[in-house]
């Protein structure tokens, strides 16, 4: 019974994160407004972070923090290396979004439009 439950859970979390990446890629490739493209990039980031943390999960594991009486509980802890990588990745993803949005503000001030087809036509 427990084995089937974990099969269903595996199917759910991996599919949801891959679907998030695909939805974000669709928004970044097809939409015409610049702010929608940046929203799509932010959704791709969320999907990738969920995928990375879900790889490091171990059945019936606990968080990798030691308590005073249980110093030898290292056998039942989840993998701490993907969590350290994802922590850096979240901060850098926010920095990239902030710089991209400042470029969007600057483009709007110059061209007075946010559609990428119009901006391609307005080159003198």
């Amino acid at each position: 019974m427990k084995h089937e439950l974990f099969e269903i859970l595996q199917f759910g979390i991996y599919s949801a994160s891959i679907l998030l990446i695909l939805i974000g890629l669709y928004a970044a490739l097809t939409k015409r407004s610049l702010i929608k493209i940046v929203i799509g990039l932010s959704i791709i980031d969320a999907g990738i972070h969920l995928l990375l943390v879900a790889i490091g999960y171990i059945n019936m594991g606990t968080a990798p923090i030691f308590s005073p009486g249980y110093e030898d509980a290292a056998a039942t802890m989840v993998d701490p290396v993907p969590q350290a990588l994802v922590l850096t990745a979240i901060v850098i993803g926010f920095a990239v979004t902030a710089v991209a949005l400042s470029l969007v503000i600057r483009l709007y001030r110059h061209h007075h439009t946010l559609e990428i087809d119009e901006i391609k036509n307005l080159k003198w």
């Binding site: 991996y14 891959i18 990446i21 695909l22 999960y57 171990i58």
Partner: peptide
Amino acid sequence: LGYYLGTTFYSLGFGD
């Protein structure tokens, strides 16, 4: 792309 990502991560397994 989704098909290839799906088959790669299903052959990895979850939780073991």
